[in-house]
Each structure stands twice: as structure tokens, then as C-alpha cells.
Amino acid sequence: MKKKIFTTALLSCCFVICMAVAFADLNGKWSGSINTPDGNAIDVAYNFKVDGEKLTGTAESQMGEVTIDNGKINGDNFSFSVNVSGTDYPHKGKAYADSCAMDIDFGGSSSHFVIKRAK
């Protein structure tokens, strides 16, 4: 009986550890390119900092660096906004092991893009 309980507990711990490894860690620098509604491509870099369910950090482009506002994480889904020249740009994304798929709202017109962990 004790052996069954020990085996079950051990397997449960292994499962939890494997699931934790499977979820991507957003901490760090990520980069990619956004295609804007007017057809221009903007190179971007995000430096994410995760604290529990809170996401902070910065976003960089040729227009400069801005802070990430209202950042939230729920599992592998996350959202935040950045304010560029007085305009908020909401972002929604899903984290994977080596990339993040994101959508940005350009005031009613959205763009889908992928960022990868910067080396």
C-alpha cells in the first residue's frame, strides 16, 4: 500500500515538473518585425519581466523605447499595451517555448506577428 502511494506521489511530482518546463518563460529579450496596416515593416524588441501574473518591461523600435503598461499573464496567454506618442497600442499574445505569437491593435486594424527570443 505504501509503495502505491509513493509511486503515485512520485509520478505526480514528475508530471508537475514536466508541465512547468513545457510552459515558456517570457523573461528576457524577444525580437521580430511588425507589418503595419499601411504596409511598412517595423523591427521591434521587447524586454519582458515576469512577476507572478504581472508582466512589465520595455518595447523598442526605431521610434525609441517605451514601457509596457497593464501587463498580465494567464498561463501561456499574455496581454499588455504600449503608449507611443500619446496613442495606446494593445497587444495580446501566446507564449511558446521558442517564440511568441502576438496581435497588436492599431486603432481598429490589427496585425499578427511572431517574435523570437533574442540571442
Rank of each mutant, 00 (worst) to 15 (best):
A45T: 09
L10P: 02
V114E: 07
V66P: 03
T58R: 07
G52F: 00
M1I: 03
V50R: 08
G28H: 03
N35D: 05
S12H: 02
L11D: 03
F80R: 05
H91I: 10
I5A: 15
V16F: 14
A95M: 05
F78P: 03
N83Q: 12
G39H: 02
M102C: 11
N35Y: 01
K92R: 14
S31E: 15
F15S: 11
Y96E: 09
A95L: 04
I5N: 12
S61D: 11
A9P: 01
A45E: 13
A95Q: 02
G64Q: 11
C100H: 02
I17H: 05
S12T: 14
I17R: 08
T8S: 13
K49W: 00
K94E: 14
G75W: 08
G39Y: 00
D38H: 01
D51M: 00
N47P: 03
T56R: 05
I104W: 01
E65L: 08
E60W: 05
Q62R: 12
I115D: 02
G93M: 06
I17E: 02
F6R: 13
T87K: 13
A118I: 04
G93S: 09
S110A: 10
V21Y: 15
R117Q: 11
C18Y: 14
S33C: 07
A22F: 10
G52N: 14
L10G: 04
D25Y: 01
K72T: 11
T67M: 06
M1S: 14
I115C: 02
K49S: 15
I104C: 06
G52E: 11
S110M: 13
Q62S: 11
D98G: 03
Y46M: 10
V21P: 00
F15L: 14
G108S: 07
S111N: 07
S109F: 12
F6M: 09
N27T: 12
V44H: 07
N35I: 13
V16H: 07
T67V: 07
Y96G: 04
M1H: 12
A95C: 03
K3N: 12
G71Y: 00
L10E: 05
N77D: 13
S61Y: 08
G57D: 10
G64I: 12
I115Y: 03
F23H: 12
S12I: 04
K72P: 01
G71M: 04
G71T: 09
E53S: 14
T56P: 05
N47T: 14
G107R: 13
M19E: 09
N47V: 05
H91F: 15
K2N: 14
T87C: 01
F6V: 13
G86C: 04
I34L: 08
